[in-house]
Computed example of a mutant assay.
Amino acid sequence: MANTFMEGKKSQDCINLVLAAGLFVSPWVMGYMADSVPAWNAWIVAVVLGALAIATLSVFAQWEEWANLVVGLWLIASPWLLGFTSNAGAMWTHVILGALVAAVSAWAVWDERQNPHAHA
């Protein structure tokens, strides 16, 4: 059971790493490079998300999954909090990737609660 649990953790962290990479390149791919607020938000959050995913891949810590959840929620809220809802590409990129990050992180937290000693 522990091996399956750890494989699931690695999958979740790899998914977050891929989402971080997608977020990082999104200003170029989605065409909002000229709008500095969402572009910088994407780059900063992508670096934080990537660092958390790499850290969690190295040594599991539940707080990192909670931090990822907060990062996902920030991505969802940031178009309104930072005022770039008028840029549809940037807004939807942040909302969709934020929802995916939050969902993967919630899944990781749920896994940990179902198997609290499996990571030891």
Rank of each mutant, 00 (worst) to 15 (best):
A39K: 10
M91L: 05
L17Q: 09
Q114A: 14
T56L: 09
V25M: 10
A51K: 02
G83W: 08
L49F: 01
P116S: 09
G22P: 03
Q114T: 09
P79H: 04
W110I: 11
P116K: 05
A77C: 13
M91D: 01
V109S: 04
T93M: 04
A53R: 01
T56W: 05
H117Q: 13
A90D: 02
T93E: 01
A42G: 02
A88C: 00
W66R: 11
G83I: 10
E112M: 08
A102C: 05
M30E: 06
W43T: 08
P79D: 03
D35V: 12
T4Y: 10
I15E: 11
A88S: 12
Q62I: 12
A102F: 03
A103I: 03
A46D: 06
A2R: 11
I76T: 01
L82P: 03
Q12P: 02
V48H: 02
I15N: 08
A20K: 00
A120D: 13
D35N: 14
N68G: 15
L69G: 08
A67D: 01
G8Y: 08
A51P: 12
M33I: 15
W63F: 11
L81A: 13
V37W: 06
H94T: 07
A20N: 07
A53G: 10
S26N: 06
H94I: 01
T4N: 13
G83L: 06
L23M: 11
K10W: 09
A108Y: 00
L19S: 06
T93Q: 01
S11E: 10
K9I: 15
T4E: 11
V48R: 00
L19G: 08
V109P: 03
T85G: 13
N41V: 09
A103M: 14
P38Q: 05
S58C: 13
V104Y: 05
A106H: 02
I54M: 15
M1V: 12
A106K: 02
P116E: 08
I44T: 12
V70G: 05
W74V: 11
W74T: 05
N41A: 14
E7V: 09
C14G: 07
S58A: 15
S58V: 12
V95E: 00
I76G: 04
F5H: 10
G72V: 04
L100S: 02
L19D: 00
A46E: 04
G22R: 07
I76F: 08
Q12M: 11
G31I: 04
A106C: 10
F5R: 08
Q12K: 10
Q114N: 12
V71G: 04
L75G: 02
W43Y: 15
L75I: 00
F60M: 01
Y32S: 05
W66G: 00
H119M: 12
G8W: 09
Q114I: 08
P27C: 03
A39Y: 00
L81P: 05
F24N: 03
G83Q: 09
V25A: 11
G50E: 09
A88Q: 10
A46G: 04
A106P: 01
M1H: 11
Q62T: 15
S36Y: 09
F24S: 00
V104H: 00
A39V: 07
G72R: 06
L23N: 05
N41H: 14
W107Q: 14
A90L: 04
